[in-house]
C-alpha cells in the first residue's frame, strides 16, 4: 500500500463514527429506561453524556475536513468521507432527541397516565433500527440498510395509534393533560429518531452503491 497513513486516517474515521454510534445507542437506551421507570438519577446520568457526544462529533468533523483538504479522497473513499459526515450529524440529532427524552422523568410527577406498552414497542423497534443501521454502515451492507429503514412504517403506525389514544384520554380527563402531553412529546421524539435511522440507512446505500435513495 502506497498511502498507508491515508488509509489509517480513513479507518480511524470509520471507527470514530462507530464509537459515536455506540454512544448514541447507550444514550438512547438509558434515556428510554429512565422514562419507563421514571428513574431521575439515570436520567441525570444520561444527560451528562451529551458533552461526550459533542466531543466525538467535533473529532469526526475535524477528521473529515482534514481528509478533504489534505488527501483529496476519490471514488468510494470520497463517498465514505461524505457519508460519515452525514451519519455523524444524524447521530448527533439522535443524541439530542434522547436528551429531550431524558428530561421527561423530571416533569412526570404523579406517574404515567397509562402503561407504556405500545410506546415500549416503538422504543424496541427504534433501538433495533439504530443498532442495525450502524451495523449496515460497519459492514457496508446496503440490503440490511433497506430492511432496517422498512421498519419505519411500524414506528409510524404505533405513533399514530398512541397519539389518538392519548388525545382521547385527554378529552375525557383534562387533569392528565400535562402528563399526557409529555408522552405525546416522547412518541414524537421516538418517531424522529427512527427517521434519523432511515437517513443513516440512506447514507449507507449511497456509500455502497453511489446512488441517492429515499427510504422513508
Amino acid at each position: 500500500m502506497v498511502r498507508e497513513r491515508y488509509f489509517q486516517q480513513l479507518d480511524l474515521l470509520k471507527k470514530c463514527v462507530l464509537s459515536f454510534g455506540e454512544l448514541a445507542e447507550l444514550i438512547f437506551r438509558d434515556s428510554m429506561s429512565s422514562v419507563i421507570d421514571l428513574d431521575i438519577s439515570l436520567a441525570e446520568k444520561t444527560l451528562a453524556l451529551e458533552f461526550e457526544a459533542d466531543k466525538l462529533e467535533g473529532r469526526i468533523e475535524a477528521s473529515v475536513f482534514d481528509l478533504l483538504a489534505l488527501q483529496q479522497p476519490m471514488a468510494s473513499d470520497l463517498r465514505l468521507v461524505v457519508s460519515t459526515l452525514k451519519i455523524s450529524a444524524d447521530l448527533r440529532r439522535v443524541v439530542g432527541l434522547s436528551m429531550n427524552i431524558a428530561k421527561i422523568p423530571g416533569r412526570m410527577e404523579g406517574g404515567h397516565v397509562k402503561p407504556l406498552i405500545d410506546t415500549g414497542k416503538m422504543a424496541n423497534i427504534v433501538a433495533f433500527m439504530l443498532e442495525n443501521s450502524l451495523r449496515a454502515f460497519e459492514t457496508q451492507d446496503a440490503q440490511l440498510a433497506r430492511e432496517v429503514a422498512a421498519r419505519d412504517e411500524e414506528v409510524d403506525k404505533l405513533f399514530y395509534a398512541v397519539w389518538v389514544e392519548l388525545i382521547e384520554m385527554m378529552a375525557k380527563d383534562t387533569s392528565i393533560i400535562s402528563r399526557a402531553t409529555n408522552l405525546l412529546f416522547l412518541i414524537r421524539y421516538l418517531e424522529r429518531i427512527a427517521d434519523h435511522c432511515c437517513n443513516i440507512c440512506e447514507s449507507v446505500v449511497y456509500l455502497v452503491t453511489a446512488k441517492k435513495v429515499t427510504l422513508n
Partner: peptide
C-alpha cells in the same frame, strides 16, 4: 470515473491502493 468507477483496478488506482 471519479465518483463510482465500475472496475476494481480503476478504483484502486484513483484511490491510491496500487502496489
Amino acid at each position: 470515473i471519479f465518483h463510482n468507477p465500475q472496475e476494481r483496478s480503476t478504483e484502486d488506482y484513483i484511490t491510491g491502493r496500487f502496489g
